[in-house]
Amino acid sequence: MKKILAIIAISLSTLMTMQITSAGPHFDNDRGYDRGDRGERGNRGRQFRDNDDGDDIQEQRREREQRGVKRLQQHKWQTGYVMPQHYRGNSYKVDYKDGNLPKPSRNQQWYKINNDYILVDSDSNSILSIRGM
């Protein structure tokens, strides 16, 4: 009985020690990155920046979003094209009665995007018709 208790006690202490040593990451500096002697390959493309550059990063993201919005606004719709997924949400769907549009067939839906009404086949997401305002 004493041998079994000793084995259990040793097993538990070993298990506790293993959990403590693997509990958290090991960092060498105050930024949280383990630079070590890994060279370029070990850093996996990370760039180490100060917090002062955070405003520049936010500005770059904002400009990139604005360029994307402008690009989408300039998009020319054509029949036969596939409707991009980000336009398939309920916020772009319109009722055909509100825009004086012809009634869509089964599995078709009208969308209003950039002052254009676009009729889309719900099964294939292909553009069937385009009506400007």
Rank of each mutant, 00 (worst) to 15 (best):
G68W: 04
R71V: 06
N115F: 07
Y96H: 15
Q73I: 04
G89T: 09
E65H: 00
P104R: 05
T79G: 10
G80V: 01
N90C: 03
Y81K: 14
W77K: 07
Q109M: 12
T79N: 08
S105F: 09
D95I: 05
D98F: 10
Y92A: 02
D98W: 10
K70M: 12
Q85A: 14
S91Q: 12
Y81T: 08
N114D: 11
D116T: 02
K112L: 06
R61C: 06
P84D: 03
W110M: 02
I118K: 00
N90Q: 10
H75Y: 15
E65Q: 01
G89Q: 02
G99I: 08
K70I: 10
Y92N: 03
L119N: 00
R71F: 12
N114S: 12
G99A: 15
D98R: 13
Y117G: 03
R61P: 03
Y111M: 03
I118M: 01
R61W: 09
S91K: 11
R67Y: 02
G80F: 04
Q85P: 02
Q74K: 09
P104D: 05
R64H: 10
Q74N: 13
I113G: 05
D98Y: 12
Q109R: 10
E63P: 04
N100P: 11
K103W: 07
Q74D: 10
G80K: 04
N115C: 03
Q78C: 06
K70E: 11
H86N: 11
G80R: 05
V69W: 10
R106N: 10
R106T: 15
R64D: 08
Q108K: 10
Y96N: 06
I113D: 05
R67C: 00
Y87R: 07
D95N: 14
D116L: 02
Q74T: 09
K76R: 15
P84S: 01
R106A: 15
R106E: 15
N90D: 13
S105C: 01
M83A: 07
Y92S: 02
Y87D: 00
E63R: 13
L119C: 01
T79L: 02
E63G: 05
R64G: 07
R62F: 03
Y111D: 05
G80Q: 01
R64T: 09
S105Y: 07
P102T: 08
V94T: 07
